[in-house]
Lab assay of single mutants.
Amino acid sequence: TRVETATETAWISLVTALHLVLGLSAVLGLLLLRWQFPAHYRRLRHALW
């Protein structure tokens, strides 16, 4: 049971790290898009909202 718990903890930390990385890359990508294509971003936002 001790090994299982350790594996579970490792998986949880791995998944958390993955989610953090994905979230950060998504935010960075959005910022980059907004910085590179302001007109396109505004049009996209206008279409979405």
Rank of each mutant, 00 (worst) to 15 (best):
V15P: 00
F37Q: 00
R2K: 14
L31Q: 08
G29T: 14
V15C: 04
V21S: 11
A6W: 03
V15D: 01
L20V: 14
L28H: 04
R42W: 15
V15Q: 02
W35E: 12
L48T: 07
E4Y: 12
Q36A: 15
S13I: 10
T16I: 14
L28E: 06
L24W: 06
A47C: 13
R42H: 12
L30N: 03
R34G: 04
A39G: 15
L20T: 07
A10S: 12
V3Q: 01
T1P: 03
A10E: 11
H19G: 03
G29C: 11
T7Q: 13
R42F: 07
L14T: 04
L30P: 06
L31H: 03
R2I: 13
S25D: 05
A17G: 07
A26S: 10
L31P: 06
H19T: 02
A6M: 11
L31R: 04
R45M: 07
L24K: 02
G23Y: 05
R45P: 06
V21N: 03
Y41E: 12
S25P: 02
V21A: 11
A26P: 00
L24A: 09
L18R: 03
E4N: 11
Q36N: 11
L20H: 04
L31E: 01
H46T: 09
A17R: 04
L22F: 06
L30D: 05
I12H: 06
A10V: 08
W49D: 08
R45D: 00
A26H: 00
W11P: 06
L31K: 06
W35G: 15
Y41M: 09
S25Q: 08
L20C: 12
L32E: 08
A17I: 11
L44K: 05
L20D: 03
A47T: 10
W11C: 05
G29Y: 01
A47V: 09
L20M: 12
V15R: 01
I12K: 13
L31Y: 13
G23C: 14
G29H: 00
I12N: 05
V3W: 02
T5H: 01
F37C: 09
E4C: 08
P38L: 10
R2T: 14
Y41H: 07
L28T: 04
V21D: 02
H40G: 14
V15S: 04
L20K: 01
G29Q: 00
V27A: 10
L33K: 03
L30M: 11
L48E: 07
T16P: 04
V3G: 01
F37T: 04
L31I: 13
S25W: 05
S25T: 14
L20Y: 03
V21K: 03
H40M: 10
V3T: 02
V27Y: 09
A10G: 12
Y41G: 08
H19R: 00
A17S: 08
L48A: 06
S13M: 11
A39H: 15
S13P: 06
V21T: 11
L20R: 01
L22V: 13
V27H: 07
T1A: 14
S25I: 06
L14F: 00
W49A: 02
R45L: 09
H19Q: 03
L20P: 07
L32I: 05
A26M: 09
A26Y: 01
L44N: 05
F37S: 07
E8G: 01
Y41F: 15
W11A: 00
T9K: 13
W11Y: 13
R34F: 06
L44D: 03
T5F: 02
L32M: 06
A39Y: 10
A39R: 15
A47F: 09
V27F: 13
E8H: 01
I12F: 06
A47N: 10
Q36C: 07
G23R: 00
T7V: 14
W35Q: 15
A39V: 15
T7F: 08
Q36H: 15
T5R: 01
R34Q: 05
W11R: 02
L31C: 13
G29N: 02
R42S: 14
R43A: 08
V15E: 00
R43K: 10
Q36S: 15
R45E: 05
G29A: 14
L31S: 11
T16L: 08
E8V: 00
H46E: 14
R34H: 08
F37M: 09
L44I: 12
A6E: 07
L32W: 02
L14W: 01
R42Y: 15
G23V: 14
L14G: 01
A10N: 02
T16D: 00
T16W: 05
F37A: 03
A6I: 03
L24R: 06
Q36I: 15
A17M: 10
G23D: 07
L14Y: 05
R42G: 11
E4T: 10
L32S: 10
L18E: 02
T5E: 01
P38W: 04
R45Y: 13
L14N: 02
G29W: 07
L30C: 12
R45A: 06
W49Y: 14
V27C: 12
T9I: 13
L32Y: 02
R42P: 06
T9G: 11
T1I: 14
H46F: 09
I12A: 08
L18M: 09
H40E: 09
L33Y: 09
R2F: 12
L48V: 10
Q36G: 15
H19I: 01
